[in-house]
């Protein structure tokens, strides 16, 4: 691992400097993760008196459980919808904003601030807009003959949480696309323009391919965001309902662990989620080594 050519000779000091970070890491990260791993192989009886070692029973039960499989499917649909929508909208806005010479900073400021809004608050804002009895969007939809009710209709509920989660994420993607677009050399686009390529052709043959490292990086980050950081959106609005239509995996871990008190199953779900995060992190870091290029 990279370090300095010359270093300080102290033997004990570096350990003291590392101590706080490592202590927090071990006590609140590694130890709980090991606990989750351990208890995912155990089953606790209803009163918590006795735990038995059950090997992979928690896992096999999970993957035979239609509720869990359904939660998996919900998570995939939700994450893909949020990632693709927020990436697409952000790219469109970023391309438009880089065309602007003077107004690009003002537009950026106006688009960027939702980054600071908590997911839970984003959820409540849209929950209010779509509220079946007093929400303004629900009112307009009714005028168009659409009977919106996210309290009853699973699809409506899903659309609601996707919109809320997307709304918050656009700002983040926008910033990275802006940075990516600004780093593309101007001369390439000018050369193509001289050769007679129009704006659309230039976008698809030059800008979009050169932007692919940014896009790929953002894709991973967005999936992570949609899978893990949107707990607040779900918990503050639909609470996984109606009929478990918006119960993403992270919500289910929480619900089974704290409300259902099914600790073995919740631990097994935690371990599966950890495996997913580790997979995504590996993908992300491999990409940093070998950038996607055409």
């Amino acid at each position: 691992m990279q370090g300095k050519r010359t270093v300080f000779p102290n033997k004990v000091l570096p350990y003291l400097l590392l101590l706080p970070q490592l202590a927090v890491t071990i006590v609140f990260f590694l130890w709980p993760a090991a606990q989750a791993f351990w208890s995912s192989f155990q089953r606790e009886d209803a009163f918590g008196f006795k735990t038995t070692f059950v090997w992979f029973a928690n896992y096999t039960k999970l993957f035979a459980d239609p509720v869990y499989l359904n939660s998996f499917r919900t998570t995939v649909i939700f994450s893909l919808a949020v990632s693709l929508l927020s990436l697409g909208i952000a790219l469109l806005l970023a391309v438009a904003a880089t065309r602007m010479l003077r107004s690009s900073r003002i537009y950026s400021t106006l688009i960027v601030w939702p980054y600071a809004v908590a997911p839970a608050i984003a959820g409540i804002l849209w929950w209010f807009l779509f509220n079946p009895s007093i929400g303004i969007i629900a009112y307009v939809l009714r005028r168009f003959g659409i009977d919106w009710n996210h309290l009853v209709d699973p699809n409506d509920a899903m659309i609601l949480v996707v919109i809320a989660a997307t709304w918050k994420q656009i700002s983040y993607n926008f910033l990275f696309f802006m940075a990516g677009l600004q780093s593309i050399p101007h001369s390439l686009e000018e050369a193509a323009a001289i050769d007679g390529a129009g704006p659309t052709k230039r976008f698809w043959t030059i800008i979009f391919p050169l932007l692919s490292p940014t896009t790929f990086y953002l894709m991973v980050i967005n999936v992570v965001y949609a899978m893990f950081d949107t707990f607040g959106v779900i918990h503050a609005t639909t609470e996984g309902g109606p009929a478990r239509a918006t119960e993403i995996l992270v919500y289910k871990v929480y619900f089974d662990g704290f409300v259902g008190l099914n600790l073995g199953s919740s631990a097994a779900q935690s371990v599966i989620l950890m495996a997913i995060v580790i997979g995504l992190t590996v993908v992300q870091f491999r990409w940093v080594e070998r950038r996607v290029q055409y």
Partner: peptide, 26 residues
């Protein structure tokens, strides 16, 4: 030194949402 670096790196892969129950117990 490398071990310490990797231990810190691992926290990246363990968001709080993933290990809610055991962390709460600790």
């Amino acid at each position: 030194r490398t071990l310490a670096f990797w231990m810190i790196f691992i926290t990246l892969m363990l968001p709080v949402e993933v290990r809610i129950v055991p962390t709460f117990q600790v």
